[in-house]
Design a protein around this nucleic acid. Structure first.
Length: 419
DNA sequence: TCTGGGGTCCTAGGACCC
DNA sequence: TCTGGGGTCCTAGGACCC
């Protein structure tokens, strides 16, 4: 059996852990630059605030209902996630961390266990030790555990947030209940086409022939179908090093000057370099893009990207910043107001297995230098040591007006309890 | 006025090889 | 009029996930 553990309203729940006064109060968490709503507590959902909504469109609703608004505090969420995953790891030999708030547990050899009791124990301890509420779905395949989890989430009272699909009868009932657009792996485009053919539930989908599914939803859809039928097809995925790494941001205001954007792009390239070094990769090419604000129809629009092949693989902040800013210079055009830019590094080699080139090579002196910089930044906080071409005043020029303290990762911001 | 930031996989078609 | 039969690699685009 597989269990899918999902943290309820994860970001909102993280904020609530350190603000018990917000229990049962509506909470929303905003994207970078405080632009969109990316997480909502149940109370906020009931108010009709949709996922991904621009905040400004819901300002009155938020004020009227005293919704508590937070800027995204990824340091806090990342740390809380690690704590939850650490606890889950103690309950299974195999844990696949699927996202910041979700993990699959393999429960092979647990036949003698009462899985209901086991799940309730996990739930209790995660709640006790981290304060985060979780839902658990258990089933013979990954896709079905996703379905079970959805039922646990939808009916928290009846299920105590744990649902197990362990009979054919329960499987059919669950699939007949689940709308096809809510199936894991079936997105907007596919569900539109399926609905048009009167395929409305997950059960309807499993009634289609294999060849039809293969033809219209590719092998991906076919694997999913088998998994939903109870034939284990989707297995645990290894944690592989990433194949692409991106750092992209919208700006807090429109930029017109090359130098302003150059500073941003330098910072993005440095951030990509750090992520590369963390997974011991070096990249062979990188992409830089920038564009104006597509929502502003009153302004002239411009959008371009450029891919640069590097003469040698590198993960040096200095080198990647140089290549990225050279690339930027080729696509930057004066006279536009820019809203967003980004750097994406691609085509990785292993850092310690880099093919040397006869003419040009990555500067070997950068290796110990980057090691030292990473160590210092790990010890004294991100971005303590920076390139001179990066802005020294701010780490990220980002609007974050309602940021909560870094309760768990900075000793100065730790929670204070008055006894 | 204000509109997020990451990732993955698959397929079809074109260019090339013998 | 009829015009082979394999391959590989790369890219763009489309779908999906959180």
């Amino acid at each position: 059996m597989f269990a899918l553990v999902d943290c309820n309203n994860f970001y909102a729940s993280c904020e609530r852990v350190f603000r018990p006064d917000l229990k049962e109060k509506p909470i929303v968490v905003l994207s970078n630059n405080d632009g969109c709503i990316i997480a909502r507590s149940n109370e906020a959902k009931s108010l009709g605030i949709p996922m991904g909504a621009p905040v400004f469109e819901y300002e009155t609703l938020i004020e009227k209902n005293k919704v508590n608004v937070f800027s995204a505090n990824f340091a806090l969420y990342g740390d809380m996630s690690q704590r939850v995953m650490g606890i889950l790891g103690e309950y299974t030999p195999e844990l696949e961390i699927y996202s910041i708030d979700e993990a699959f547990m393999k429960l092979q050899g647990f036949e003698k266990f009462n899985l209901q009791t086991y799940a309730e124990e996990i739930q209790l301890n995660v709640s006790k030790w981290t304060g985060i509420p979780i839902s658990i779905g258990i089933a013979p395949t990954k896709a079905l555990s996703k379905v079970a989890n959805r039922i646990a989430k939808k009916f928290p009272k009846e299920t105590k947030s744990v649902h197990i699909i362990d009979t054919e009868e329960k499987r059919i009932k669950a699939l007949k209940w689940l709308k096809v657009e809510d199936v894991w792996g079936i997105g907007r485009q596919h569900s539109k086409r399926l609905n048009a053919l009167n395929i409305n539930t997950a059960y309807d989908f499993t009634q289609m022939t294999d060849s039809w599914v293969r033809k219209h939803l590719s092998v991906v859809g076919l694997r999913l179908k088998h998994d939903l039928e109870g034939i284990p097809t989707l297995d645990f995925e290894e944690v592989l090093p990433k194949k692409n790494i991106a750092t992209t941001r919208s700006f807090e205001k429109l930029y017109t000057e090359f130098d302003e954007i150059k500073e941003r792009v330098t910072t993005f390239a440095v951030s990509c370099s750090e992520k590369l070094r963390r997974q011991k990769s070096a990249c062979n090419s990188l992409m830089v893009f920038l564009h104006t604000n597509g929502y502003r129809q009153d302004l002239p629009q411009y959008s371009r990207n450029i891919i640069v092949k590097l003469p040698f693989p590198s993960n040096s902040s200095i080198e990647l910043a140089k290549f990225a800013t050279e690339a930027l210079a080729k696509i930057f055009k004066k006279g536009y107001s820019y809203k967003k830019a980004g750097v994406i590094v691609m085509e990785f080699s292993q850092e310690d297995n880099v093919q040397l080139n006869i003419f040009e090579n990555s500067n070997l002196k950068h290796i110990p230098l980057m090691k030292s910089i990473d160590r210092i930044n790990a010890m004294y906080g991100q971005q303590k040591v920076r390139l001179a071409s990066q802005d020294i005043k701010k780490v990220w020029k980002m609007k974050q007006l309602r940021l909560s303290p870094r309760y768990t990762t900075n000793i100065n911001e730790i929670i204070i309890i008055n006894c």
